[in-house]
């Protein structure tokens, strides 16, 4: 008793783009539940409140909230415990503390035992993120397998991002053929659900894989088609497409044609905070190749 069969309505309180607002929503929701009569439901809400606090990088407060949840769960085999392990693992991972994988594994094992596919996939997906190489691929494959076989629509919703993550893992291990096949699955999955933005991302990834395979002409054509499709759908300009067009043309030895694409890419991506924080070298390279373009223009004027 007191265990939610499907917690999607707890998760309806989430706005992952706004953890402060999410925390407020969970605080309000928690105030409506009596921990004396519904301890597991209360604890489950606390785990999500802790996640929202963790996303604000307030790790001490987040761990304290999880401790409150732990006391209420009292080791009862339940969705609340699955989610407690999951969020504990996520907090350890994002606070750069070790042993996160132990908690994801506990979460995965219990979720499988309780037939909670959605959380089993979430835990396997997290293990896929923190493990490296073959182990990462194994966890992603497990997650895909559960999602494909699950009878729960909510669990199946994982498939798009799982295909994407798995394909990238293959890509980075230079198994481009396998990566290409799974990116195709990802594209088809998003297309079936009319998720155009995600479908475009999958198309970009396919084109990127073609470049990695050395199929430059096909890669160029794929990026140009994507550019046209995005324009037709009134999507904003995408610096990553311009960057790829530049890279493909550069690989083809067509530096002059590549330069304006790099310049445009730099223009669009220079304020991207994620790139600034994580791919500084990539931005600097774009800037350099952009400067080459500017210099060549100046020389033309002279």
């Amino acid at each position: 008793m007191n265990t939610l069969a499907d917690s999607q309505d707890i998760d309806a309180l989430w706005d992952y783009m706004d953890p402060i607002k999410s925390e407020q929503c969970f605080t309000q929701a928690i105030a409506q539940i009596n921990p004396g009569t519904l301890p597991l439901l209360y604890a489950e809400l606390l785990t999500q409140q802790a996640r929202a606090i963790g996303l604000q990088q307030q790790y001490e407060r987040a761990f304290a909230t999880l401790a409150d949840a732990d006391a209420l769960i009292n080791n009862t085999s339940s969705v609340a415990l699955v989610r407690y392990y999951l969020e504990y693992g996520r907090l350890l991972h994002s606070s750069r503390t070790s042993h996160a994988n132990e908690y994801f594994l506990k979460s995965y094992t219990l979720a499988i035992e309780l037939h909670e596919d959605f959380y089993a996939i979430d835990a396997a997906h997290m293990l896929g993120i923190i493990e490296k190489g073959l182990q990462s691929l194994e966890w992603n494959t497990i997650a895909i397998d559960i999602a494909e076989k699950s009878i729960h629509p909510r669990a199946k919703k994982w498939l798009g991002s799982l295909y994407n993550n798995t394909a990238w893992t293959y890509f980075f291990s230079e198994n481009y053929e396998k990566a290409y096949t799974i990116f195709q699955k990802s594209k088809a999955w998003y297309a079936e659900r009319n998720l155009l933005n995600e479908e475009f991302i999958a198309e970009w990834s396919l084109a990127r894989t073609l470049r990695a395979q050395g199929h430059l002409q096909e890669a160029l054509q794929a990026q140009l088609t994507l550019l046209e499709n995005r324009q037709a759908a009134n999507f904003p300009e995408d610096g990553y497409i311009s960057e790829e067009l530049g890279e493909i043309l550069l690989s083809m030895g067509r530096e002059q044609e590549a330069a304006p694409h790099f310049a445009h890419a730099f223009d669009l991506l220079r304020h991207d905070i994620w790139l600034q924080q994580n791919e500084d070298k990539r931005l600097k390279r774009l800037e350099l190749l952009s400067n080459n373009f500017s210099n060549s223009q100046e020389q033309e004027h002279e």
């Binding site: 008793m1 939610l4 069969a5 499907d6 309180l13 309000q28 929701a29 439901l41």
Partner: peptide, 15 residues
Amino acid sequence: EDSIHFILGLIPHLP
């Protein structure tokens, strides 16, 4: 209404 909406969202999933 927010409070009621939240509870109504949970209730169908309760045993």
